[in-house]
Design a protein around this nucleic acid. Structure first.
Lengths: 145, 145
DNA sequence: ATAATAAAAGAGTTTCTTATCTTTATTTAA
DNA sequence: TTAAATAAAGATAAGAAACTCTTTTATTAT
């Protein structure tokens, strides 16, 4: 696995896709999203339902329904997506999995890791969901496969 | 989960433990290691067998046998342990899980992530297995629970 | 040689993650 | 008010990761 779980990878790609598709208004259906990012449709549906319960995407049922992101969502940091799916273990947890690892009782990797974890957290906090739309529109970045 | 898999956490803790216990010579048995780092004995045995096949720890069967680390092992970077167990996906993989993500065809997070991944890799490469022995001996760092 | 010891190997179980399929609830448009 | 569209929810299954138990093999001391 990479840094994030596969579920989290899907979530991030889906959120970018929805943001990109609906920044100018409208909704996008689960089928189109799954197709657009290359993920299993039903599985992604679960993930998006979860994100919508947490307010990270919006959704409307029925005809012309689908998922969308409003302005407030576009401004949220992508760390919100990661935390919603993978939890905050990646930002706060000990690299060796030790419960009581801390500044006072550090594991061998504690200090080296603190820097990296903080840097990761800072980066994901400083990067907003909406930030990629212009790049996606101009086709510089890709979300599929 | 944290940055590494649970198996990898066990592996790192076990390697530090073995290095610490046998830096001055001698061997340490699987039972003592499992007890010392708080891991399931039989599961850890598998992990250490794997590491010993790859030369990251040494082992001797029979009475007075056990695992140990010689000088050459103490000088290896801890990235060797991580790569042996979790592979190098964490160092090289795309954060969004995209196969064809690259400099030319980057995903939305590509550039932001490159920095972090490189920093992580650099750190794990620059840190040797033997490096923690003095701290472990003086009791500053802990490996259990 | 033999017995004791300890790692190595194999087989099996449980749990978690990822994925699929089916049904239900809600909304809109005609 | 009915039919169609679509998200939400539930139930289940496949696969991988984590863990356990048992048997085998190698080594050493007696």
């Amino acid at each position: 696995m990479g840094i994030f779980s596969k579920t989290c990878e899907y979530a991030l790609r889906a959120v970018f896709f929805v943001a990109h598709k609906t920044a100018g208004g409208g909704r996008v259906g689960i089928k189109e999203i799954a197709e657009g990012i290359g993920s299993p449709e039903h599985f992604l549906a679960k993930v998006l339902q979860d994100l919508s319960r947490r307010g990270i995407v919006q959704s409307v049922k029925g005809p012309n329904g689908g998922f969308y992101t409003d302005e407030s969502v576009l401004q949220r940091p992508i760390s919100d997506v990661v935390e919603a799916v993978d939890g905050n273990g990646i930002f706060t947890g000990c690299a060796l999995g030790l419960k009581q690892c801390s500044e006072i009782n550090p594991c061998p990797l504690h200090h080296e890791f603190k820097t990296i974890r903080n840097e990761l957290h800072r980066m994901l906090n400083a990067t907003s969901i909406g930030e990629f739309n212009t790049d996606l529109i101009s086709g510089i970045t890709a979300l599929k496969k």
